[in-house]
Amino acid sequence: MIIVYTTFPDWESAEKVVKTLLKERLIACANLREHRAFYWWEGKIEEDKEVGAILKTREDLWEELKERIKELHPYDVPAIIRIDVDDVNEDYLKWLIEETKK
């Protein structure tokens, strides 16, 4: 299992991408949270609201998921960050495997 973290400019784009990834069985679950973001862009510090997405999937779907997020994402340079999961309860892992691409 891995967790993939990315951010979106608004709820509409986050929900659209997450629902597509769920329908395509590239992820089993997503958690969305609105937050304030501070970052460098084109030589100056920007401040915005963003929606952070925590996507849960299988390790073997990483490359396909990463490419699909790039295709669907509204940002020119989206953060697509893989977080390896060292340990997870067996029941959750079994569910995640059953719900992602066969």
Rank of each mutant, 00 (worst) to 15 (best):
E15Y: 02
T100P: 03
E50W: 07
K44Q: 14
L22M: 12
G43I: 06
E24F: 06
D86V: 02
K49I: 09
E63T: 10
W95M: 09
E15A: 02
D84Y: 01
E71H: 03
L26S: 08
V88R: 03
V77R: 10
L22Q: 08
E71I: 07
A37L: 11
A37D: 08
Y5S: 02
R68S: 08
V88L: 14
A37N: 06
I54Y: 12
L65Q: 08
L72F: 10
K94W: 01
E99P: 00
A53L: 05
N89S: 04
Y92M: 05
I45S: 06
N31H: 10
I80S: 11
K101D: 02
E71W: 01
L32W: 04
R33Q: 11
K94N: 11
T7A: 13
E67A: 15
E98A: 13
W62F: 15
W62H: 10
V51Y: 01
Y5D: 00
K23R: 15
V4Y: 00
W95Y: 09
E24S: 05
P74Y: 09
D91T: 12
A53N: 03
L72Q: 10
I3L: 14
K23Q: 15
K66V: 01
K94P: 00
A37C: 12
E42I: 02
D10Q: 05
K16S: 14
G52Q: 05
V51I: 15
